[in-house]
Design a protein around this nucleic acid. Sequence first.
DNA 1: GCGCCACTTTGATCAGGATCAAACCGGATT
DNA 2: AATCCGGTTTGATCCTGATCAAAGTGGCGC
Lengths: 249, 249
Amino acid sequence: MKAKMDLSVDTKECWNCPIKHQAVCSRCEPDELKRLEEIKYYRNYEAGQPVIWAGDHMEFVASVVTGIASLSQTMEDGRTQMVGLLLPSDFIGRPGRDSAPFDVVAVSDLTICCFRKNPFEELMTTTPHIGMRLLEMTLDELDSAREWMLVLGRKTAREKIASLLAIVARRDAALKKHSPKDGMNFDLPLTREAMADYLGLTLETVSRQISALKKAGIIELDGKRRVVVPSLERLINETGDDVDGGYIS
Amino acid sequence: MKAKMDLSVDTKECWNCPIKHQAVCSRCEPDELKRLEEIKYYRNYEAGQPVIWAGDHMEFVASVVTGIASLSQTMEDGRTQMVGLLLPSDFIGRPGRDSAPFDVVAVSDLTICCFRKNPFEELMTTTPHIGMRLLEMTLDELDSAREWMLVLGRKTAREKIASLLAIVARRDAALKKHSPKDGMNFDLPLTREAMADYLGLTLETVSRQISALKKAGIIELDGKRRVVVPSLERLINETGDDVDGGYIS
DNA sequence: GCGCCACTTTGATCAGGATCAAACCGGATT
DNA sequence: AATCCGGTTTGATCCTGATCAAAGTGGCGC
């Protein structure tokens, strides 16, 4: 009996919101926060549930508070490509546009903080802090989308898997506020199919390459979802990326 | 003797700048434009010349005025992936960051309008119009980067070529201010290699697929660079995209 | 315990695009 | 005219990852 924790009680108030230092509202002054608080409401989704379908009218924009959502595109014949992973503090939707360009699906159980679209847009024109933070976040997203284009266009299946693992490892380390190190372990909250959709592969190839990395000792699996990385350097070597380049920041 | 036209004389002044209605400065009031004008200068590059290398310190941000530039990433072993095509009015660089994340190369002869970075950043904090326009442009870029991820991750070689042609056709139509129509023709200002780098293919595959589309009567070639599209619908069918979806806007 | 179901692994075969190689084309230089 | 050269086309073969198929695993409800 997996009793689902009700996270909402903890996050109803901005002052103890877990993403208050990263989200679109992180630059806001107390009075601006107050006005945001008036137009916000929370929504919860279970793993697998759709949040928005491409083309839907959107009456809100939102921040991911807890959990993971995917942004993806599907062709008529069923081929699908994930075009973004939305993690806590990531922004959903777009001021000035009212139909969604991509599908948004809850990958894990998910809580989002919604702002009614019209008042939010008004608020953006009057308070610069929101727009500035959103610009920053959007520029970051654009950079990572472009990094991902290299993965999709030029990397081998093995390099793709290693790249995904390296990204999740880095993100997990950032979340726990320590730098990624040897022996670290983390949850991989994606099914083989979701990984395939993210990497532009089939799920069989994903499975085979993960087995190969395991056999090569690059990773160890603890159960189905927990990954252990004995040597981070060896993992990064497998990504094809420059070992020292990129992520100094 | 290819006498190079000096475009710069025509574009030194904001009031008759060819991109004044689309660029980052398009929302500016006359007084804001005046301040921008004080910190701007033009640069010209010949086709093939590098503008910025990844990792370089950048002392400016800029708008593409005329010509085309590419944004690309290269792995140590030489594999490269283009991650963006920069067309007139597109923005180069990023306020608040001083080293370039990607290579920028002039694909055709190129003129850019540069703003010194520090004064530009200051201007952004004091005048909201620049930041707002930049946010809009960045959100658009992010959407098209994500569209491109579907092309890279899931489309066949033939669909990739057709997608590229359809995009260039649409952009060309937009530039000439009419909707794309049957029988239209346009320049394809990219070498086979550049197309390959954009599409995540080899140049041989690009060449073969273009030949195949030609043989199938989907396109006609006039010389090496000019493309004629007898039936736009037939071209779009080849992209794998939903025929009516997407680009209504 | 038993079976069900979603997810995963593994195997055999196939095919799309990469790779290696050579010829071709058109414009510029001498 | 002869040569050169960047870019392009075409051909032959190879290999990575897709596809088709079957069996394995583990959690859950009955």
